[in-house]
């Protein structure tokens, strides 16, 4: 369970988050929508522990533990996964090697046994197949020369292999065609069970046609200004965000 309580955060002198409160129980998928500049990406980066964001107030509990003091890798080991809006290219780092290193680092921290190369490849190939990706995906360098769609698929592949308890999808749908969108949705939907939860950050409603959320929250001006069931997304699509920002 993720509990965000009165979260305030700033970049430099600019306060971006001005008191975000939000709870995502296990097994639920919540969507955050909102206009550009509302603080959506800031929220995802603060949750995953990126430098440059200063939390001035509030706390974030993940399964009862305050994560704000944790290093990014410890958050990953705790079961959080951030799907990046702009996945980073790693020239010279092979995809398979990267994934195995990540998986084993997480397993080690959890006191689980590390996977050997054979066992890992079996797992990875399975995931690649399930995501309808070409097998050479594993041999290529991480995100180098990938198309926008391929990068997002690669994020889903990582998620499938690392099996997080909480996935944060930061505008993963931006710039995707409908097929890629479905793959992202499927990536989330296959993980769906009573232990898994997700925070889907998106500007558009269309991703939510494929990942039906349990709740939709509207983030505007650094605060949650409205929350409601999945139908709220359709409503916003029709009426836009105007009028919400002032709230």
């Amino acid at each position: 369970m993720l509990e965000i309580k009165n979260l305030h955060a700033r970049i430099g002198d600019a306060e971006i988050l001005k008191g975000v409160t939000l709870t995502i129980p296990d097994g639920e998928i919540h969507a955050i929508m909102g206009p550009n500049g509302a603080g959506k990406s800031t929220l995802s980066y603060v949750l995953s522990g990126r430098d440059g964001y200063e939390v001035t107030e509030g706390e974030v509990l993940f399964n009862g533990e305050n994560i704000l003091e944790m290093e990014p890798e410890d958050r990953a080991a705790a079961g959080m996964f951030l799907a990046f809006q702009y996945p980073v290219e790693l020239p010279g780092v092979g995809n398979a090697n990267f994934l195995r290193t990540s998986l084993n680092a997480i397993r080690r921290k959890r006191g689980e046994e590390e996977l050997d190369a054979v066992a890992f490849l079996k797992l990875a190939r399975g995931a690649v197949k399930q995501l309808a990706m070409k097998e050479d995906f594993l041999k290529r360098n991480v995100n180098v020369g990938f198309s926008g769609g391929e990068k997002k698929r690669n994020e889903m592949l990582q998620m499938a292999i690392l099996k997080p308890h909480l996935a944060i999808l930061d505008e993963t749908d931006s710039g995707l065609d409908i097929d890629a969108l479905k793959i992202v949705a499927e990536g989330v939907n296959t993980l769906r069970d009573e232990k898994f939860s997700a925070l889907v950050i998106t500007h558009y409603q269309r991703l939510l046609d494929y990942i039906v959320p349990d709740m939709v929250h509207v983030l505007a001006g650094g605060k949650i200004v409205r929350s409601g069931p999945a139908s709220l997304a359709q409503e916003l699509e029709a009426s836009g965000y105007a009028g919400l920002e002032a709230a």
Binding site: P72, E73, A76, P87, E89, G92, T101
Partner: peptide
């Protein structure tokens, strides 16, 4: 640092993340 963060967000400890990136640089 973007790359370092990306690796860390996937669970790889910072020191290891740096080492991976330097070796990738040399590999190239």
């Amino acid at each position: 640092e973007e790359q370092v963060f990306y690796l860390r967000s996937r669970g790889i400890p910072e020191a290891d993340a740096r080492q991976i990136l330097i070796r990738a640089f040399l590999e190239e």
